[in-house]
Nucleic acid binder design. Structure first.
Length: 104
DNA sequence: CTCTTGACCATGT
DNA sequence: AACATGGCCAAGA
């Protein structure tokens, strides 16, 4: 019998959700939390930080509600994340993602 | 069991 | 629009 914490289960849900975001689009932490009925958006970040693989689950497509990038991207930092998003075709406004067009 | 920290968000200045 | 503060809930020490 395994100790299944609430977030432990939601972890897969969040990762799956992120995996459904098409290339060139992004989503926000709050959006995920709301759709998956998480108690708080902070958990989304916590879960994503325990992300097993950025290649399997494009966690770089998750941004702040304002379009700002995460302060501590697990695979190199926000700058790496930004570069990846631009590379995938996501439009940027200064340091923020253009949610107006790229929000999934 | 208590305290601290954390990939956030909404509101106020 | 940018920066600072409070509140939210859970996991780790």
């Amino acid at each position: 019998m395994k100790k299944t914490s609430a977030t432990e289960i939601h972890r897969f849900e969040v990762l799956e959700y992120v995996a459904t975001v098409p290339t060139g689009k992004v989503t926000t932490y709050g959006r995920i939390a709301k759709d998956l009925l998480l108690p708080t958006p902070r958990l989304v970040g916590k879960i994503l930080h325990t992300n097993p693989d950025s290649n399997t689950y494009p966690c770089h497509r998750v941004v702040f509600s304002d379009g700002k990038l995460a302060p501590s991207y697990a695979f190199g930092g926000a700058e790496i994340q930004r570069k990846k998003l631009i590379k995938e075709g996501v439009l940027f406004k200064k340091e923020k993602v253009d949610l107006k067009k790229c929000l999934y």
